[in-house]
Design a protein around this nucleic acid. Structure first.
Lengths: 226, 226
DNA sequence: AAAAAACCGGCGCAGGGCGCCGGCTTCCAG
DNA sequence: CTGGAAGCCGGCGCCCTGCGCCGGTTTTTT
């Protein structure tokens, strides 16, 4: 079955081989870099392998030495994004959270995450890709899990006593609110973005502060639910 | 230029003709209905004209009597969505807002909007389409403008005294926060969704209450900016 | 210096979905 | 009852774009 063969190849998302030589590693980095730049400029719909190759000044064939197909490039960008988030979150977890109050914690959290959003090239099209391209869905899910697990852990260290399912709900609400407003913030000019950033912090504080001490929230006896 | 011709046809999004007979009008409604159902079931990527026709039990040719192309169907769904929102907002504006306090207002607002989100079939793929398909971008923008203008007007009636650009910022923050959390809410089960709905209300209250009286916010002297 | 890895440009080609076509059926008016 | 307009139907042409392999050359590594 050549069809099955093709599907297999198509669903292959990891790089063809681990680049060993310095030059090759550099190339792979350059490809991602260029792709990021192009995503910003032309958007997801007009991004083609030919365009990437031309922009970078290499041939299409070369591209396929590093990545088995176009989606794999986007996938790699997504992983880069995930790892930036991971770094930011782990740095935050280094801190002495037990002795931070909630406002201080939120200020730290938002600063770090906004920075990650700010430095990511072509973020919006990338998000769009993670929603729209089936092969990349997994990344979106991993992103959510990553944030939920880290946030839950940190909330606990801050003294939250909610049961796991409620913690989960709070983390999800936090993450979605942050994501939505970060996208607003990075598109605003100086003062406005600071104000929105501050509003976000106060909103999160309101939500979290209201629930931090609820050991047994009413009506939430289920263990796991969306 | 057959190419220009084609482009012209492709960019055509309004229905081919206004249906005059009852049967035809009914068909058009059915097409949108079926499309909504299919969007829920198979998602945006696997939605094809053939599938729509087969599901509805008509031929593909028939579809093209009512809509010039596939995107036009989605466009029509989007417009339906916009009009639901408009209705909800206008109903709210009927009320005696001047004598409502902010909490009461937010409760009303959220109830109505959540209801609209709940009853819209295939909402998520539709949103995805409005982001991903260039022809539908306009809908997304109109949606934002719609909400921002209505929200600004209502905030004013509630006694807000901010300058227009700040009002705009607050409306945008409101809309993005609502959108993000509505999508969470409609996917949660009973009690949890109520709690998130309540959290959202308190968060919005926090943000809006903080700024309702700021006639001259510091550093916001520009007239228009993102 | 030989082997392995990286690089190059061209081109075959597959396939999936779009939407037109030509002819039929139904409905309404006169 | 009849004529014509609106509605309906299935098929399939076909496009066309982007994917990704190939055979050969150059560079790096050991």
């Amino acid at each position: 079955m050549s069809n099955a063969e093709q599907r297999k190849r198509k669903s292959q998302l990891t790089p063809r081989r681990e680049p060993v030589q310095a030059r090759a590693r550099e190339r792979a980095r350059q490809i991602l870099d260029t792709t990021g730049r192009l995503l910003e400029e032309v958007g997801l719909n007009d991004l083609t392998t030919i365009l990437i190759a031309k922009e970078l000044g290499v041939s299409v064939g070369s591209l396929y030495h590093y990545f088995p197909n176009k989606h794999a490039i986007l996938y790699a960008m997504g992983e880069q994004w995930l790892s930036s988030m991971t770094v930011a979150l782990e740095e935050l977890e280094q801190q002495d959270l037990e002795n931070l109050d909630l406002q201080q914690f939120l200020a730290e959290l938002l600063d770090r995450l906004v920075a990650v959003y700010r430095e990511q090239r072509g973020l919006l099209p990338l998000v769009q890709a993670m929603w729209g391209i089936p092969e990349l869905h997994e990344l979106d899910e991993r992103h959510d899990e990553l944030l939920i697990s880290h946030l839950s852990a940190m909330y606990k260290r801050l003294g939250f006593v909610c049961p796991p399912n409620e913690m989960n709900r709070l983390a999800r609400a936090t993450l979605e609110t942050c994501h939505a407003l970060f996208l607003v913030i990075v598109n605003q000019a100086g003062v406005r973005s600071d104000r929105t950033r501050e509003d976000l912090q106060q909103m999160l504080f309101t939500m979290l502060n209201a629930h931090r001490g609820e050991a047994r929230p009413a009506g939430l006896d289920d263990v796991e639910a969306p």
